[in-house]
């Protein structure tokens, strides 16, 4: 059994590419909660971007990461639901399907690796709720954000396909709401909460992607949320980077800051906004921050 307060940190590609605020705030929060994050220089992309091109290559790449983690005897912690989803899915597939496992291991052998199926991969949200626990999180909250009214957006790959992910209810997810409420903030319900952000369509059809994001922002605005809280780097990019563009394109005004959950939790734990990389957000969050202070 791998430890519950020590993980191998899995960054993936999107976080180091352009979402460092998530990494910075997540590391601060985990440190305060007494969780140790071990660096793993050999990790590579989880494999997900290869799936549309070659399923086999995706399986091998994901299995390579899992096999490396097994050598350390620690569970993997990811910030990206895409990475978590891929590693969880492949872990389950290879554990359950002996023929597939043997096939993938024949490829890993070339690099001196073997998948055995001895560890788990978890997204930070899953680690927070299952391993660290709500009690401990609540106890760490020293500045409850009672003035905050926010909305949440989960991101698809932390929930679907449910057969492989097996975490929360994809049709009515509760974990992120519970975690938000643990900070003292109110989490508002809104229309089509589980709708995809559209990020995967960027570059294929920007128009479709932006329309999806616009829909979301409209629904969030409609219930009067002061911010939208995400736990996925891609969803965050989709909303934060494109909000101004969507405002211009569709002649709307939102002014809704997009916060990483770990920034919200960090604030409630008394960590200063400067330390949580609020300055990296494209949509100005100073108004909501003022209310928190």
């Amino acid at each position: 059994m791998a430890e519950k307060n020590k993980y191998l940190m899995f960054l993936g590609c999107a976080i180091p590419y352009r979402v460092s605020a998530f990494e910075i705030s997540a590391r601060k929060v985990m440190q305060k909660l007494g969780v140790e994050l071990v660096e793993m220089p050999e990790f590579n992309c989880c494999g997900l971007p290869l799936d549309p091109v070659s399923h086999e290559m995706m399986l091998i790449l994901a299995a390579r990461n899992l096999a490396l983690a097994e050598q350390k005897g620690l569970n993997i912690l990811t910030l990206c639901p895409g990475c978590a989803g891929t590693l969880k899915k492949v872990n389950k597939m290879l554990k359950e399907d002996k023929a597939l496992r043997e096939d993938i291991n024949s490829h890993l052998k070339e690099a001196g690796l073997e998948f055995k199926g001895t560890i788990e991969a978890k997204h930070i949200m899953q680690a927070l709720i299952e391993d660290i626990g709500l009690e401990k999180i609540k106890n760490a909250v020293v500045k409850p954000l009672t003035a905050f009214k926010v909305a949440e957006h989960n991101g698809c790959h932390i929930l679907r396909p449910k057969e492989y992910i097996g975490f929360d209810d994809p049709e009515d997810p509760k974990t992120l709401k519970t975690l938000i409420e643990a900070t003292g903030a109110t989490c508002l319900d809104y229309m089509d909460e589980t709708e995809c952000c559209g990020a995967p369509s960027v570059g294929i059809s920007d128009k479709i992607a932006l329309q999806l994001a616009r829909d979301k922002l409209n629904h969030v605005k409609m219930v009067g949320a002061q911010a939208l809280v995400t736990i996925c780097p891609f969803c965050h990019i989709m909303y934060d980077t494109n909000e101004l563009r969507i405002e211009k394109m569709f002649n709307e005004t939102y002014g809704i800051p997009i916060l990483h959950y770990t920034q919200l939790l960090g604030l409630a734990m008394g960590i200063l906004p400067e330390e949580l990389a609020f300055n990296e957000l494209r949509v100005d969050a100073s108004k909501i921050l003022k209310e928190a202070m």
Partner: peptide, 13 residues
């Protein structure tokens, strides 16, 4: 940043 190991990746693929 983790350096990854492109050499090893290519071997497995």
């Amino acid at each position: 940043l983790p350096r990854g190991n492109p050499e090893s990746i290519r071997k497995t693929l």
